[in-house]
Design a binder for these strands. Sequence first.
DNA 1: CGGGGCATTGAAGAATGTCAATGCTTGTGG
DNA 2: CCACAAGCATTGACATTCTTCAATGCCCCG
Lengths: 264, 264
Amino acid sequence: MTSATACAPTASTSSTAMPLAYRPQSTITESPPPGTRAVTNCSACSLHPICMPPHLSTTELARLDAIVCSTRIVRRGETLYRAGDKFKSIYAVRVGCFKTVITHRDGHEQVTGFHIAGEPLGLDGVCSDEQNCDAIALEDSKVCVIPFDLLEDLCHDVKAMQQHVHRMMSGEIVRESGLMMMLGTMTAQQRVAAFLLNLSKRMKTRGYSSAEFNLRMTREEIGSYLGLKLETVSRMFSKLQQAGVIDTNGKQVHILDSEKLAGV
Amino acid sequence: MTSATACAPTASTSSTAMPLAYRPQSTITESPPPGTRAVTNCSACSLHPICMPPHLSTTELARLDAIVCSTRIVRRGETLYRAGDKFKSIYAVRVGCFKTVITHRDGHEQVTGFHIAGEPLGLDGVCSDEQNCDAIALEDSKVCVIPFDLLEDLCHDVKAMQQHVHRMMSGEIVRESGLMMMLGTMTAQQRVAAFLLNLSKRMKTRGYSSAEFNLRMTREEIGSYLGLKLETVSRMFSKLQQAGVIDTNGKQVHILDSEKLAGV
DNA sequence: CGGGGCATTGAAGAATGTCAATGCTTGTGG
DNA sequence: CCACAAGCATTGACATTCTTCAATGCCCCG
């Protein structure tokens, strides 16, 4: 980071998170972030195998590149979109990490998901023509913007693309089913363990260490996601540490024994 | 029912609306249930506005009819599909009611949803090419079978259809988000209240009374769905009744004051 | 070096789960 | 047609888990 350039859309806003608690977690050192817009290139993107269908022809890839023509930088604490925003695009996280938050009428908030690099974002907006949650960056992040109407057009012409979109959406459904299972049947300790294992698996998928990583979210955000109070989350971390299953120091997590963790 | 002519859509069955409290819950007296197969007809189906996109041309409707060419009768307690089954089709509940159940490796089960007439079923299978839950009829039911590959073909030619499929899937995502919110933030009483209100709303959508209906599921199934024990569910029913908000007798439910119910 | 956000930990209280007994409804078989 | 078994619902007493309230410490930042 550094890039002065304006255009940081959603701008500051949801500042709240800004304080930069522990350590600087930013790192986006984009070369051309002239207007938070930059030419993208799915065909050359290293996340390509993760977020797009395989086996596209050169022509098809070119069309894809034409659609996914912009990226957007979202600074820590800023929102990518808010509930109620007109739904136009879905996003692919390219760098960084987001949380999605639903706000009840009564002001009550709940984190519904964390999204790391390579994962889609905004699929829940398709059904209602408007976003129904806020997407907030947990660290300086970058997303690819995918106009959904254009994507639908591409789906029309490229069957593999259509299938991929269907799979992404269905995948969201399954992901949420898993979370529901967790919320509905697991104890606090099991939830925290499952959360760590899930994150670990996803980190691994994109080439990071599955045993050691940094949490980008607070205990409170984890708690909100897991249906627990932050104190409970903290206690479970401590308990797992005492049991020698993990080693934690604040946001730094080291999984020492993933089997035991899974068997909690 | 009597109408020999198949296709008497919502027909008697989905008795739901009819008190029939305890009473026999079977009733599908299909004329031609020779092989659990029968000719369907989306264009003539009364659920059409609910489960298919509006404004289709005659030609398009004909194509749809050609795809949704069969129905299947599923008796109470039987499964429509099981986790692990090859994913081929999605379904639309035409008559009756289903629950979907995920089974943990440890044998632990959780109900992930209830599906009544007019609602889609099986969308979560799209992502993995296999079903990842069991769908079990809670009463004698009938579904329309929609081969997904054919549907994708139709989506290719009919934009309205493609959008509809996307909306259905996204709708599933949103539905589950709501459930997660419930599981993550609500008390037992609030969950039961929200459950009843949600069901009430869905009943209303398809023309049944929103104030009075029969539950097709047991307290245990409700509990599994809500992340509660059956005893707790039962207690909450009793509590809401004492508060004069609902009137229940076993599976028969009468919502006396939906505002109070929402404000619990 | 003082403040703020975040994390950890303890003690007490509330909500939910567990265990157990009872009754009602339905279905079955004599 | 009645008796009985099985499944479901209700209710009470007690145990456990999680939350609430509160105090303290840590770490970065201005």
